[in-house]
Design a protein around this nucleic acid. Structure first.
Lengths: 247, 247
DNA sequence: CGGTTGATTGAGGCCCATCAATCCAGGTGG
DNA sequence: CCACCTGGATTGATGGGCCTCAATCAACCG
């Protein structure tokens, strides 16, 4: 049940975690990107790299939040279950995104975080951020930016992915998923969620989601559709989006 | 076009704004509630009370955000227009809520804020918060709490107000609106949005919204329905909600 | 190989969007 | 004072998009 925990501890005499974070290739994207090398030396608490398989939970809604997480690779979906027992995906997080900010306020998590693809994250204990923010005022601004980004994502979800006919919503979702693509070529491979998950994202039945994906394949927007991934004709996608928004 | 701006400047020798804020009946709700009286003395910048009529805009999406706002009374709706030109209400804000947090990050506003009822707000210039947060670390936490609250609201909107049949969504909206009610009696008067606005909140046509409101009147959940307000049978509402979520 | 899980496709029916007519309240001007 | 106009609310009729139920298919696995 527990995910593998890999320590980033370097075998060195002093401040080993600082070394690991300083060498992190995500540093400019991640929360501590604004901090100087000196500041990283202040890190005494353990940051742990964690690896999860699709379907595994990073945390559950209602849990007391002890840590926040930076996504190193893969995609996480944040879910809620409403009063009627229906599942709804409220946000996606990918490489460089920071989730679980509630931890900083000592609140329980506001949603369940589930790995949608193979996932690598860094677990950042609440105390570490508190410690650093004492001395480094810039960190507070960085955190607010993360919060604002999450808010903007949620509102975009409401405005773009929750309105209009099913076909259009799927089209927009595919567009959004293209930002998690591997290469930035003209026909990149994108991750495709489970049809049931697409339904939970776009508020439609999984059959409707399946039909919409099939339609995109027939239209040539998606090439080589496999259950969990597809190759995307980016130019045709954008053209279809434009004509769809017009008519 | 411009809303009336009423200065809270007290006629006194020193730090007049501090006096006004110290006397504010919303202070424990509002952003500066955590600050001491001493801290309020630091306020040198102008906070302006502002009054708006229903339909007037507090700010527009895309505008460079120069200030944030505390709602003193009334209800504000935050709207977006998506790529297809459809309008969507993404959040509501009432007494004590803080909106326009983007200002602190020097970003443009992420949505349009419109008065849904007669409205009183306090306009807080961006610089004031920056100034205060220099010396008072607690303010950063207060701000993060506001951000988290806004995020939770947006996600609740997605999970609760965007799923299920139209009748249920309207029922839940009415439940949410009851928190903006005047008295806390058993049959309070609540504000009812324009049917078109209900549609923009719940992603349905205004005709469907109207029919749902009419149904609530027939069921006795709403008594004395007027276009812009209604008297609510709170007990029956909660009973209907429970049975609706069950079946 | 049978069993399981998810995807796809079809058929039918219902919820809701759309179009349209009417009603109602408030404002304006003769 | 009343005719007229206007904007929003209400209610009806109709068609279509999507949900539901169901069968089939593909992939994986013990």
């Amino acid at each position: 049940m527990h995910a593998a925990v890999v320590s980033l501890h370097r075998q060195g005499p002093v401040h080993p975690q600082a070394q690991a974070c300083a060498r992190c290739e995500l540093r400019r994207l991640a929360l501590f990107g604004t901090l100087s090398e000196q500041a990283l030396d202040c890190i005494h608490v353990h940051i742990a790299a964690q690896r999860l398989e699709p379907g595994q939970a990073l945390y559950d809604i209602g849990q007391q939040a002890g840590a926040l997480f930076t996504v190193r690779s893969g995609v996480v979906r944040l879910e809620r279950v409403n009063a009627s027992g229906e599942r709804r995906v409220v946000r996606l997080a990918g490489r460089g995104d920071l989730i679980g900010l509630e931890a900083l306020l000592k609140q329980p998590y506001g949603s369940t975080a589930l790995a949608s693809t193979p996932l690598e994250v860094c677990r950042i204990p609440r105390g570490l951020v508190a410690e650093l923010s004492q001395s480094h005022v810039g960190l507070a601004t960085a955190l607010m930016q993360r919060w604002q980004h999450a808010l903007a994502q949620a509102e975009e979800w409401l405005a773009e992915l929750s309105m209009g006919p099913a076909q259009r919503r799927v089209l927009r979702l595919v567009h959004k998923l293209s930002q998690y693509a591997q290469g930035d070529e003209q026909q990149p491979w994108i991750w495709l969620p489970t049809r049931g998950d697409i339904g939970a994202m776009l508020n439609m039945s999984m059959e409707t989601a399946s039909r919409a994906i099939s339609a995109l394949r027939r239209q040539g927007v998606l090439l080589q559709v496999e259950p969990q991934r597809a190759r995307l004709d980016l130019a045709l996608l954008q053209a279809t989006l434009r004509s769809d928004e017009r008519g």
